[in-house]
Design a protein around this nucleic acid. Structure first.
Ligand SMILES: [Mn+2]
Ligand SMILES: [Mn+2]
Ligand SMILES: [Zn+2]
Ligand SMILES: [Zn+2]
Lengths: 140, 140
DNA sequence: TATCTTTATGAAACAATGTTGCATAAAGTA
DNA sequence: TACTTTATGCAACATTGTTTCATAAAGATA
């Protein structure tokens, strides 16, 4: 695991510090679930708030994580699945916020359908934020 | 205009105060453009920050305005076009954030296309946040 | 209109969230 | 090891949002 973590860090030209290794491990373990600042602070034992802000920004800039726009008030972050790097992100999947458990999921398997934009508009980015009840909350 | 404003306020069971009339006027004049807190503070002359927070919340609760999820960092609000009320909002149009001028537009004319959700997920809400260059910025 | 009841406003105090500057520590490099 | 560059931790600050409460104003009643 630590090997995988270090691999990812160096692949994205990030120095292997204890903080970054811990943070990346947390993201890997969370799978397709997006994490809020609070989620992360709870997962990290002792930590520095400011370093977390900065590390999240580095991870985002270097293409390790992306912001999961889910329509909720808390910003959430999740691992990039694809080959995102310092130059560009390609996280074009929807995000689903469960109103029952509060978890936000990356829906990597779903493609956002096409649609027509009015004349003279140029599309560069796109976020589809869904909400409702997730699979595990539906079963109860 | 003031007549229209008062009409809307009473239709949504909101007392006609000077502050609400002013704020609603600003929204009506902004048309399909969504406004950030800062946009509104600039448009209002002298004002109270806290009252603005509370009035925005009232307007949203009563179905006058909706939050425009555009993927940007600032929360923006825009007039509801439809028959939203205290019971439910039906603002299912995409929002477009222009990276050049920073304006967010409600795209009422565009319908968000259908797509399939994984088993056991129940969809309740949906936001499509688009970004790029708007029509007026493209022309330059 | 005068009176009453309910709700909105404005001010202050507080809480939460995010940013900047800087000295020190640690990582990468030779 | 010695050197250079970058990350960290802390403090101070800035911005954003919330709560409390006394007062003002709106709507209702008579
Ligand atoms: Mn995602
Ligand atoms: Mn809108
Ligand atoms: Zn759930
Ligand atoms: Zn524009």
């Amino acid at each position: 695991m630590l090997h995988k973590v270090d691999d990812i860090l160096s692949k994205h030209a990030l120095r292997r510090t204890a903080f970054r290794q811990e943070l990346l491990k947390i993201f890997i373990e969370s799978g397709s679930r997006a994490l809020s600042h609070t989620d992360i602070e709870e997962a990290l034992g002792d930590h520095d708030r400011i370093t977390l802000y900065r590390t999240l920004k580095s991870f985002q800039d270097k293409g390790l994580i992306h912001e999961a726009v889910d329509g909720g008030k808390d910003t959430k972050y999740a691992l990039c699945q694809n080959q995102c790097d310092v130059h560009h992100h390609i996280d074009h999947h929807p995000h689903f916020l469960c109103e029952s458990c509060g978890v936000t999921y990356c829906m990597d398997e779903i493609k956002i359908p096409d649609f027509d934009l009015p004349r003279n508009y140029t599309l560069k980015g796109m976020h589809l934020a869904l909400s409702g009840t997730c699979a595990s909350c539906s079963k109860v």
